[in-house]
């Protein structure tokens, strides 16, 4: 598979870069037998080997008789992805993060949830039912973290 070949090569490149970075680590003054670079180098070697195995996969698998592990069904992984929905979640999260501290937790969360539910809920009649959740969940979470757990969340504009 082309995707596996590209991924495999990327893993090899990562392994080589990591090996390089490990070798460039400053040695401790006291010469030890095993410095901070040895273990990372083992990992780097592993990455290079495994990346190569993945890239050369189909061929090697046939030669070595390597088995494909039995399929374990996982919910949600069937069928082609709904790309606009994925983009809506990722872009939404990025904007949410960017405005998290400026707008404050409660306000940014209400906006974020409203946008995501509007984007993902096909049945528009259901939007109205989501309103209490969109308003209550952020407020309850704020109270839980701020009052009960003593964790400060950003107050932003409402602060």
């Amino acid at each position: 598979m082309l995707r596996d070949r590209v991924t495999g090569l990327a893993v090899v490149v990562l392994g080589v870069a990591y090996w390089g970075a490990a070798s460039a680590l400053p040695r401790p003054l006291l010469q030890q037998d095993v410095g901070p670079e040895v273990f990372p180098r083992l990992i780097a070697g592993g990455l290079m080997l495994l990346g190569a195995l993945l890239a050369a996969g189909p061929l090697l698998r046939r030669l070595a008789g390597w088995p494909a592990a039995p399929r374990v069904a996982e919910a949600g992984l069937e069928g082609p992805a709904d790309v606009p929905a994925i983009v809506a979640v990722l872009v939404g999260l990025a904007l949410y993060t960017a405005f998290y501290e400026r707008l404050g937790f409660v306000l940014s969360t209400v906006l974020f949830m409203a946008v995501e539910i509007a984007a993902l809920e096909v049945d528009r009649k259901r939007w109205i039912w989501a309103v209490p959740v969109v308003i209550l969940l952020p407020v309850l979470l704020y109270l839980l973290f701020d009052k009960l757990l003593g964790v400060k969340l950003p107050t932003g504009l409402l602060g």
Binding site: Y100, T109, F112, R126, L141, V151, L153
Partner: peptide, 28 residues
Amino acid sequence: RPAVLVAAVLVLSTVGVYATNGRTFDLW
């Protein structure tokens, strides 16, 4: 509704990470 569920999981994930160290770097 699965859409409500997904939105709630996203919010819980974010707040959990932020609460650990209190910085948006972790969120990115």
